[in-house]
Amino acid sequence: MATVLVVDDSSFMRMRCVSTVKELGYDTVEAGDGAEAIQTYKDQKPAAVLMDITMPGTDGLQALKEIMAFDGNARVAMVTAMGQQSMVMEAMKSGAKDFVVKPFEPDRVKAALTKLLA
C-alpha cells in the first residue's frame, strides 16, 4: 500500500489530514516543518506528499523546491490556507501537481490524492 507524507506544523491539522488519507486506505508518515519533510522524503520515498506552506523554519514552498530537486518525479500537492494567486502560481511553477486551500472538505483532499497517485 502506498505511503503518503503529510506535512503541516499544526498537529491538529495533521490529525485531520491523516484520518482523511487513511480513509482512502493509504499509509501515512508525518512531518511538522519543511526541513523534516525534506529529510523524511529522502529517507522514505513516499508515493505522494500533502504539503502545508506556512510553517516555522523551512516553509512548504522551499521544501517543495528541495524535494523536486531531489526527485523530479515527486508527487506533491499543496494543502494550505495561503491561497493567494501569487502563491498558487509559484507552487505550480515549482512542481506542485495540485493546490488545496484550507479549510478543506475531505473529498477535495481525496480527489487530490487520487489524481496524484493515478
Partner: peptide
Amino acid sequence: SALGELGNIMGS
C-alpha cells in the same frame, strides 16, 4: 494546535 490552526486559517 487547534486554536493556532484556527488563527492560521482566519488570518490567511
